[in-house]
Nucleic acid binder design. Structure first.
Lengths: 193, 193
DNA sequence: CGATTTTTTGAATCATATCAACGTACGTGG
DNA sequence: CCACGTACGTTGATATGATTCAAAAAATCG
């Protein structure tokens, strides 16, 4: 149950067996079915979720009920509505499962205790957040600086696992375009080569 | 010289005088003139920069030499090319000063020592990164989900200080639109009310 | 002041969205 | 195991938001 998280932490920090054994106690595991919500907008995001298995998405909806996918999370990824988790304010986003999934949840209080009592864990999250942040900034750079076709090409190059498992309409949503546009872009690309 | 950084840290973590006095030793101060580069793409980003005074921007350039502003940093903000800083790879982005500025730089080695020896400092950066990340995700959500006009309205609401100090063509760049489009959007808005 | 940068405006064009329809795949209950 | 409903993908016609190119007006700077 914890093997994937353990590996994930060990790849990033020098955590000892004892530290990890203690850390484990702050998590609770949860199974979640395809299409089931982990978080609905207006609820407060009470936990960070580590994906042991499966696939989830975080998305917002606008006034026209259009969904925009903010992030995917396959096994080995973390997912949450950080904004809500940190502030305790109602979430602006939804999180649900794209596939049946197995999660490890850590609540805010536990997260804080974990960070404050096990320095290696705080280091782990610090390093994790550094990487996430640099990835987010690259995505912003792409969104403001490149055309949809290039964003798609970069996406399939960066996340081939996602392309194989997630429907195209959701990838379109992540890229900030409509499913129709993505379909046309793919058609163009298949003609080009 | 360190008053702003000290305040910034104290607002986020319970750092003691002694800890901060030690932390200070890992920073070097730097003055930088308007239009001067702090980082040029293809160089390696060797430091994180805390802005004590002034204003900087981080931007990428595409093949057509168009600039896209990824982030601004006024006093009290951090700026860097995290991707390059963390990996040691050449930076994809440029950082330069929009106004004459005063910075506190911390090099990678110092940053690591600081985080590893003063837990409060690692906590500070962890908390900082949490907030930065949640802000980045909101920006991504806006970029994929809302029209330019709404992004602009949200921007002037969120960052009124920036609007007052930074030319509109740069705000347009940050929003992912051309200066001409922003001009027209502003015209529309002024007619509406 | 003159020089440069920034903002505005107009006309044509482009990238992507929208609306609508149809085809295909999938999986669930009878 | 088939039939049906639902989700997903494609395509066409048209509309729209935003860009591009060009030029002039306005603001800022040394």
């Amino acid at each position: 149950m914890f093997t994937r998280l353990k590996k994930h932490m060990q790849e990033r920090v020098n955590i000892t067996e004892e530290e990890f054994t203690l850390a484990k106690t702050y998590f609770v595991s949860k199974k979640i079915r395809k299409r089931q919500y982990l978080l609905q907008e207006r609820d407060v995001c009470k936990s960070l979720a580590f994906v042991s298995n499966g696939a989830l998405r975080c998305y917002s909806t606008n006034d026209k009920a259009e969904e925009h996918i903010i992030q995917f999370a396959l096994e080995g990824w973390w997912i949450s509505d950080l904004q809500s988790f940190l502030t305790g304010n109602p979430a602006a986003n939804n999180i649900d499962a794209i596939e049946d999934s197995e999660l490890l949840l850590i609540e805010k209080k536990s997260y804080e205790i974990l960070c404050n009592t096990i320095p290696r864990c705080e280091q782990y999250f610090r390093i994790l957040l550094e990487k996430t942040n640099s990835a987010s900034l690259r995505r912003i750079s792409d969104l403001i600086g490149t055309l949809a076709e290039d964003r798609y090409l970069k996406f399939i190059d960066t996340y081939p696992e996602i392309v194989q498992r997630i429907p195209q309409n959701q990838i379109a949503s992540y890229l900030g375009i409509t499913p129709q546009s993505l379909s046309r872009i793919r058609k163009e690309l298949s003609i080009k080569r």
